[in-house]
């Protein structure tokens, strides 16, 4: 019997949960098909089906779904209302399976586990168990697959916190099928510039949206700090003074990370990659901007949309890096004289 093929689009929460999903389905004996990395063409295919009101990462997932729809028996598009005890995901992700189902013809059946971590009956483990049962696996099999998946996911998160770049991790995971212990990043040089890069993971790590931002930063000899590197406690600590409950899980992570990076003077400059018409970014970005202004730290918000070209991007990045470098040079100078 040919094993079942489950398709996972390389978009949105792929960049956060892929090790978990992949291990889960592989342990069950299914074959996981991931769509090809984003290109301009994938995005343009997405435009044809996506509504014009949604943000560009959602349009992107339409393209990715189109990329794999005829190669799989099932599409895996989880419905994440909340992936945290207190927080919400973006509401568009909660309605995503419907948006895709009703806009595109001839789709294979969609597996859409409903995840709402706030309530007992809808936790991730239970939701994935239901998926397993739908695919005719028994309780024990799904349970075992989930615990294996969780193991890999925990390791993924730990390595991210150690400062390994998410893209390297995911690439290594895709080729090996699991995480190995070999170190993936070079040791940071002491005198190098430190740049914080924040934003939603699906904007930061998508190859089309980030214009090789990480490679460019590395070429400029900068070490990179992303929200994944910052510990949950630190984020909580920095948001406590805000006296406001930031209820979006991702938004909370971004804001907390930004506050930590700015206030503790960890970085010499901060880049926020936002996307046009993102509701969460539109509220979080001003807060980060105000704080950066108060801390007098170099700060740049890069907004991506359908028309973003590489020219403008590179120019702005270079100017920003120059500012950050000059600032670092000056502050090092001050420290030396005092």
């Amino acid at each position: 019997m040919m094993s079942m093929r489950v398709g996972i689009p390389r978009a949105l929460l792929y960049y956060r949960y892929f090790p978990l999903w992949n291990t889960f389905f592989r342990e069950l004996g299914a074959q996981v098909v991931v769509s090809r990395p984003s290109t301009r063409k994938v995005l343009e295919e997405g435009f044809k089906f996506a509504d014009d009101d949604v943000c560009i990462p959602i349009k992107m997932i339409f393209g990715h779904v189109l990329n794999i729809e005829d190669k799989v028996d099932y599409l895996f598009i989880p419905r994440l209302l909340s992936d945290n005890k207190t927080g919400y995901c973006c509401p568009m992700m909660a309605g995503l399976p419907e948006m895709i189902k009703y806009s595109m013809p001839h789709l294979p059946p969609i597996l859409d586990p409903f995840v709402d971590e706030r309530y007992r009956g809808t936790r991730l483990s239970g939701a994935l168990s239901k998926v397993g049962r739908k695919l005719k696996y028994n309780f024990l099999q799904t349970r075992r697959a989930y615990s294996k998946a969780r193991e890999q996911f925990d390791q993924f998160q730990r390595r991210m916190r150690d400062g390994v770049s998410v893209l390297d991790l995911i690439n290594a995971f895709e080729t090996n099928g699991c995480f190995t212990d070999e170190p993936l990043t070079e040791k940071e040089e002491d005198g190098s510039m430190k740049i914080g890069v924040i934003g939603h993971p699906y904007n930061l790590y998508d190859t089309l949206f980030n214009f090789d931002l990480f490679k460019r930063l590395k070429e400029a000899n900068a070490s990179i700090y992303t929200p994944e590197r910052i510990h949950g406690h630190t984020i909580d600590h920095h948001l406590r003074r805000l006296k406001k409950d930031i209820y979006w899980t991702l938004g909370r992570e971004i804001l907390g990370a930004a506050f930590h990076l700015l206030e503790s003077r960890v970085v010499d400059g901060l880049i926020y990659v936002t996307c046009f018409s993102c509701g969460i970014d539109s509220m979080i970005e001003p807060l980060v901007g105000f704080r950066a202004k108060r801390e007098a730290s170099p700060y740049m918000a890069l907004m991506i949309d359908e028309h973003t070209g590489i020219g403008g991007f590179v120019t702005r990045l270079e100017a920003f890096l120059d500012t950050a470098r000059r600032r670092k040079f000056n502050s090092d100078d001050e420290r030396r004289t005092s």
Partner: peptide, 30 residues
């Protein structure tokens, strides 16, 4: 809906099908 509204744009997508199923014309203003 105001342009970029996260929740209503989900509704907007689904309303297209509701419109077809119930044969009721729907006009959306973003």
């Amino acid at each position: 809906l105001p342009f970029g509204c996260m929740l209503e744009s989900v509704a907007k997508n689904i309303l297209r099908i509701v419109s077809k199923d119930y044969d009721m014309p729907i006009l959306t203003f973003s």
